[in-house]
């Protein structure tokens, strides 16, 4: 594990109540692994389950933390990122409160300030979601 708890704030521009990553397990220039334990007070939890928007935001912030790790290595601050496009996104499981999400994100391509990310969210051995996401990074 390389980042945990409030140290995540160094990697991503989001702040509570919308922080959806609580650990970064590993990161390289091409891929990263991040996680989230779903808590009852998460704003995307409804009736004991993390809703679709929460799952996708977790993917987006895993990608943001991944980009943030690379920014930190080059001494930059995390940039604001916006989801430009979601494609081929399969939401198989709505994770229950207490679930530990472990998410693998991989950089498919990067052109200018646009990153294309492929992501897979697992709970144990079960695949909860897979997704392709285009993220626009805003330059300061």
């Amino acid at each position: 594990m390389i980042f945990k708890g409030e140290y995540i704030h160094q990697l991503i521009p989001q702040r509570p109540p919308i922080v959806m990553v609580d650990v970064v397990w590993s990161a390289s220039e091409t891929e990263a692994e991040a996680g989230l334990t779903v808590r009852q007070d998460n704003i995307f939890v409804d009736d004991g389950k993390l809703r679709e928007a929460g799952l996708i935001e977790h993917i987006a912030q895993s990608a943001a933390a991944f980009a943030g790790c690379n920014n930190i290595l080059s001494g930059e601050k995390p940039k604001l990122g916006f989801i430009g496009e979601i494609k081929d996104c399969c939401l198989s499981v709505l994770p229950e409160v207490g679930s530990e999400l472990r998410t693998h994100v991989r950089l498919v391509t990067e052109i200018g300030g646009i990153r294309l990310i492929s992501a897979e969210v697992r709970i144990g051995e079960t695949i909860a979601a897979t997704c392709l996401m285009k993220i626009f990074l805003k330059d300061d």
Partner: peptide, 10 residues
């Protein structure tokens, strides 16, 4: 409930 997003452009 959303099962699958084929494409969503923002």
């Amino acid at each position: 409930r959303i099962l699958r997003i084929k494409q969503c452009r923002m």
